[in-house]
Amino acid sequence: MLRIEQLVKRYPTGDTALRGVSLSVAEGQVVALIGPSGAGKSTLIRCVNRLVEPTSGKIWLRDTEITALHPRQLRRIRRRIGMIFQEYALVERLSVMENVLSGRLGYVNFWQSWFRRFPQTDIDQAFTLLDRVGLSDFIDKRADELSGGQRQRVGIARALIQSPDLLLVDEPTASLDPKTSRQIMRLITELARERGLAVIINIHDVPLAQMFVQRIVGLRAGEIVYDGPPDGLTPDRLSEIYGAEDWGASQATTAEQEPSLTAQE
């Protein structure tokens, strides 16, 4: 459903973040994008909804060539692409409900959104989603009163109320503690399965990715160096993605920690 061909991104500063990336994601498929910091993960998913303009290359969402769209058409296609951010990117001074409803902005006109007159169906959907992510008691709270995990749940509800076909998720757990991280990963992958969404999740926590995702893409210095199942990520492969490191040792320690962490939940 998503097809990326020979995507190149060179920033005005001269950094080449992507060097000809090609990637396809099938309907309903969840892909984890791993790689060291600076590999180009954020740039890649930002090119998909053109928060970052690609330098060259093509991106198709189903039959639409995203890279060829005019601003108005681009806004229409963005409604079908939900995005979840590392730092949640909520509007701090708006309520939880307003933050969730802001996911519907592409579907209502300016005055409807200015006076907060969203269609009842949107509001019903917001209630349902807030209930689903476990925030029904926080509807009137301001976003800046929530904890990190709660904020990310609002972020998830905001992305899902768009009724997207594709979800772009940028390091959703990087600011969260290990237990909350897994809850958030579980929530995202469960919701994606329920709704049959295709998802790209940027994540630097390899064990967490392996736990929840069936396909892993490894990015290094703007190039794809791995694309396969989680258990194909041998220490050698990981060194190739992340550079020389004693992967055997670090995996052994995570393996030891696993049971105790799971028990806590």
Binding site: N49, L51, I81, F85, A89, S102, G106, Q162
Partner: peptide
């Protein structure tokens, strides 16, 4: 960025 990404 987040609001832009919704298609607003």
């Amino acid at each position: 960025e987040a609001i832009t990404a919704t298609g607003a």
